[in-house]
């Protein structure tokens, strides 16, 4: 009976095995900060590439060439239907077959630019495998988001542009995409939030991003759980900062449609993602008269 109580007490307080001082010590550690920076770099590059791939897939699927349409559908089917973890591992495992693992590792550009604080070097082959898998995977999801955004624009916009002598590509670039982009921004923001966390799967392939750095430090210091908390705090910080920026971007992009009298979300609502609803989408739809 006494043993059970003690156990329950340890569950509640974590006193017997959790050392908060480790958390405070490692949260601002250079190694962890470096890991967080790698996570951000990985996320930004993958999101940008993924968005471009999504855009490309849209035009392939809408195009006249049947083989391209089918290939694009197959691509999306494949990358949405298999686990991201498998995709990351597969690219990483594929590289040695192509005889590029070792040469890539030898380049080591990250150490050259001062990323020397981690528990080990940031391997270029791991980094590229992660970028490749994350971008290609994200592209499949962005394809749907881009499609929803572009299809939401009234066909009359394209017709008006054409009637003024614009070609399809010019009309897309100047008229349709800028409007679709506003509709895409809120789901794109959510995708990036996911991306920040999905990069943690690169820990599988020994990439010293935030999670892997924390895991290595934690295991070496018998503080695994503490370092997982450290990593979580950093993920929370990153996603919170992103939420704040997302709010600002959405507000800026909606400048032409926002009703000046409409209530705006407070900074804390934007940062923590409360009270936003689908305001970004609703205000992007042009008013009918």
């Amino acid at each position: 009976m006494g043993g059970l109580l003690q156990w329950l007490q340890s569950v509640v307080t974590l006193n017997h095995f959790f050392v908060w001082t480790y958390v405070w010590k490692y949260t601002p550690a250079p190694a962890i900060i470096q890991g967080a920076i790698v996570t951000v770099i990985l996320s930004v590059i993958s999101q940008l590439l993924g968005t471009l791939i999504g855009l490309m897939l849209y035009f392939l699927r809408r195009g006249r060439i049947r083989v391209f349409r089918i290939s694009a559908d197959a691509y999306i089917w494949f990358f949405r239907g298999t686990p991201l973890a498998v995709q990351i591992l597969a690219f990483y495992t594929l590289f040695p077959y192509l005889h590029i693992s070792r040469p890539l590792r030898a380049i080591d550009p990250f150490s050259a630019i001062g990323f020397t604080h981690g528990p080990g070097p940031i391997f270029l082959d791991s980094f590229l495998a992660a970028i490749l898998a994350l971008s290609l995977n994200e592209g499949a999801y962005m394809a749907e988001i881009v499609r929803a955004g572009i299809d939401a624009i009234d066909v009359g916009q394209l017709e008006a542009a054409k009637s003024l002598g614009m070609t399809y590509s010019l009309a897309m670039r100047r008229i349709v995409l800028p409007q679709a982009f506003r509709i895409i921004i809120p789901p794109l923001g959510n995708e990036f939030n996911n991306m920040l966390k999905n990069t943690a799967l690169a820990a599988f392939i020994a990439l010293n991003e935030l999670l892997e750095t924390g895991r290595l430090i934690g295991d070496a210091n018998f503080a695994s759980l503490e370092l997982l908390v450290v990593a979580s705090l950093w993920y929370l910080l990153l996603t919170t900062i992103w939420g704040f920026f997302q709010g600002i971007i959405e507000r800026k992009l909606n400048a032409s449609n926002l009703d000046p009298g409409a209530p705006r979300p407070q900074w804390w609502q934007r940062a923590f993602g409360f009270g936003q609803g689908n305001a970004g989408v609703a205000t992007a739809v042009p008013a009918e008269h």
Binding site: E159, A160, S163
Partner: peptide
């Protein structure tokens, strides 16, 4: 088309 102006029922201004 650049030499033919068109005005639409639903205006189709670029919002």
């Amino acid at each position: 088309r650049a030499e033919i102006g068109m005005v639409f029922q639903r205006f189709n201004l670029f919002p």
